[in-house]
Amino acid sequence: MTDGRPGYRGHRPILVFAALAITLVAAACGGDFPQSSLRPQSDVAREIDSLFRGIFWWAMGVLVVVEGALVVAIIRFRERPGAEKPKPVHGNTALEIAWTLAPALILIFIGVPTMITLWRVDRPPPSSDIRVEVIGHQWWWEFNYPDLGVTTANELHVPVGKTVDLRLKSADVVHSFWFPRVAGKRDLVPGTENQLWFTPDSVGVYPGQCAEFCGTSHALMGMLLFVDTPEEFERWAAREASPQESGAEPRPSDDPSVLAGREVFFGAGGCISCHAIRGTPAAGILGPDLTHVGSRSTIAAGVLDNTPDNLVRWINEPHDVKPGNLMLDMGLSDEQARQVSAYLLSLE
């Protein structure tokens, strides 16, 4: 029983969609998107962005033509009562050749800029002003600056206007390095070394994160890019390169909880089996280097702001904060955790 609806009424749903779409597009273009690939802040990202925008408008042109033709066909050629049976047209060679060539032509306008950009972006860096070795871990980032003697984690500092030459490796599984504001993705593959470069052109702090599924807490493998002024960067690098304590002597500190925290860190906490603080006996390599952890703005790979409360939470409940991660819950008392957090925050 086809309750065949004579005279199909209503293109109204289409109008509703159009209205919805326009609202959505308006909402999507405004607003603050700190991790957006459409807000490029480096030479490489700008090249990719302008390539994308070119392709985007070609695509919009095709979209309007094709969907337009479809809508016209729907409206003009619906069956009308009493009309004759349509002419059985089987094809039209000229037309078919035309609409084979048209997309081919458009593809030339997409393909040529693609190749030009590709060979500009996917090549060895034009210079290596700042060299950084990036090592992906489940689920944090290790950054080594071989020329500066700096090892840090999750927060990458680079000076504005200098070409950054990144060598990408993995300590465990495949990860992907992605700061959308300055470059496209590049995978970190265990057993091989990959390369990525960009020249940031605006001072600022830009978020990024792992972009290849890498296990349970893949979503919590964030990082921050600090594009500093040259002076800021020099200051940062000098501080990061310095060891925390000279010799085996603890640094004098007014705060007794810092000293107590140091005791726990080196003793009952067992922290030193995985973490290093350069200049001290702590030389673990499984976890992030904590030499200057107090000066970082986030902890746990961009998951938490670096505050005393968050540090305590991270120390006491590492698997609530980041499921499946390797950090052990050492069973410290709240007081001990508080002391360790005070100690860590003192490591500026």
Partner: peptide
């Protein structure tokens, strides 16, 4: 299908451009 596949096809063309895809892949 025709209306929707056109949209999916065009975004596909956007990925085919390798440099652009470096921003799009895995997102």
């Amino acid at each position: 299908l025709v209306a929707m596949f056109v949209i999916g096809g065009l975004s596909g063309v956007m990925h085919s451009s390798a440099p652009a895809d470096l921003q799009q892949t895995d997102t």
